[in-house]
Design a protein around this nucleic acid. Structure first.
Lengths: 197, 197, 197, 197
DNA sequence: TATGAATGAGGATTCATTCAT
DNA sequence: AATGAATGAATCCTCATTCAT
């Protein structure tokens, strides 16, 4: 029953299945066959829609990134003071769609591959740069420059480190608690900065 | 050229080759054949010494952990005040042998596998627990309990996050700079705590 | 050239190739690669259809047994007196499909493996029990019980012994002659029994 | 501690280990390494004493045959009437050293290989011919020629068939019972022959 | 004589990809 | 559009054999 306009639906279905499959068996053990099984379609279809396994994996990572971007924009909407905006950027990384066991596992999988797969590395770099720059724009209004830069650096490292620990803990780590940890650290930096004025 | 007592030498040689091979091609692409090539021996010997690929990988991770433990003990030697000890525990994670491009890449590889390989997961958990507990013992002498716990949590998450970013940056991230970032964050927490007294 | 409904055809083709391959090189020397070569297909397909080498071997033995069962039923059809039925059961073991050089060789191969492979052992036991019981039902109408049992025992041992010798003789042993030997022995037992009445 | 004259002892030790190893895992699964383990020596030594695995296997089969020959001679010693001698030849095949679970298993293993290994085939043929001829010499004094030949044929087939069934039954089949079965069959033939005189 | 380290060929198996239907 | 049969390359692993000690 081929339908017109099925392409985007099938593509998303396969991307979701990919992320689910990575979540259940890790990057080194996913097979095209397993993904297609999870998606409830035949193995051949993946090549029809994506050209190959690598392209599908790239599309899956791109999908995660797109979601993160959308979450960030949503959290920023309507906020104008810099501190709120910094905190909103942070929060976007801890929403259920980004910090669910499945999501953190998928992130870890993609990170582990990025150094060796140019397409994934590019995506990862663009994203890291974007987070850094988003944070920096706001932090520069709150802190002197060298400190703004340092702060952007540790904030993003801490976010990733918390994702990582969540993946390793098997999802035991609460997104809310993780988020609070970053904010508490930020409190310390910002309050001290305020004091010194 | 079989020699008596070669076993420990060969084992270490193969473990080193494994870490090097992971560094150059990632976890999902390492092959027994590549490892043996890097080690300059035949592929069969790996089974002779380790029983199989999985056992070798486990031994390699165990070797990294052993090194971290040794570094920690070395950094702690002779220190008695708690703040110095906390900082020593942190520093052990940024020594060249733990923060080299090769090492951070290997860590990332093992992290990505741990959720799916019981033997690796066990090692990772034991190690995470040890770092946490080491930090906590000292932090409890410096901070009230809920804060000591929170601090131990973000310190270890930040350490891992920095390793991760170093691996993703392809080794561009300096170990010294990364280390300084953690210490600076710790300064903030400890100084505020002192102020409040 | 994938076609719909190829499964049963391919399976039989691979089973036949397996028996042929065993016939030409024995059980310890058959390889998946050789079987697939005889069948004129790729090696991978065996795993597609049977899951693995062991399952294929089991299927091949099962196929031989099914044929023996079919031969037995065919020979028994329409016979009602016990002696004829005993002789028919015997004859089924000496038909061309069961006593051809290829078949006796395959039997020998399976026998040699049965003690170590549970699946094959099970098949062999079920079959031995069936032959024994088939013979016994009829012999009990011809002979007093202890003798019926003994006769069933030696008849089946003799049948297997003749198969074995045929395999060892490289097919020189004629099925017809072998069959006659069993019948002649049976004559002796049955005639003596008649005499004594 | 190399000793003079160790060679024959080591050779026998390795042959015994080979038969034991075949008994525990079948022909297709024996490895040089397993045999040497059973013998309590290193794997390399097998090549020193036998030149290779195949030669060791041949030596092991030869050893079984030598034992059978010795048993036959021992059973024949002092017997002069033909019937006793026929029965003695039969009995030699059911002594513990030839009909033990280990022995019948080894026989089955060798039979299964004989068709494909010239050296083993030769041994098997010589032995079959010897049994046949031994029986025939005596049977010709008891029966008219065509019947003597037929009798020699089924007797040897029955002996082998009983060995085979013993191997397949996992040693459940009693040597004494098996032996009695052959003798009982022989009774029938010989008594009828006497009657007809 | 005896060891066991080391090799390398060969085998089973997995899997991405292709393609006839 | 979709299937799943089929392939063949790649991988892990086994094992007989060699050889320095």
């Amino acid at each position: 029953m081929p339908k017109l306009g099925m392409a985007p639906i099938r593509r998303q279905q396969l991307i979701d299945a990919t992320i689910a499959a990575i979540g259940e068996s890790g990057f080194s053990n996913i097979t095209v066959s397993r993904i297609s099984q999870v998606a409830g379609v035949s193995a051949g279809i993946i090549h029809h829609y994506f050209g190959g396994k690598n392209e599908l994996l790239e599309a899956a990572m791109r999908s995660l990134l797109r979601d993160l971007h959308a979450q960030t924009l949503a959290h920023l909407a309507g906020l104008h003071d810099s501190e709120s905006r910094v905190r909103a950027i942070i929060d976007a990384n801890f929403t259920p769609s980004q910090f669910s066991p499945q999501a953190v596992t998928a992130w870890l999988a993609f990170w582990s591959q990025a150094p060796y797969v140019p397409a994934l590395r590019r995506l990862q770099r663009v994203n890291a740069a974007r987070l850094q720059s988003n944070l920096l724009v706001e932090l520069r209004r709150l802190l002197p420059d060298p400190e703004a830069k340092r702060t952007a650096a540790w904030v993003s490292a801490l976010i990733d480190g918390l994702s990582l620990r969540s993946a390793l803990a098997g999802g035991t780590l609460d997104g809310e608690a993780a988020r609070a940890l970053v904010h508490a650290q930020l409190d310390c930096i910002l309050s001290r900065s305020t004091d010194s004025h």
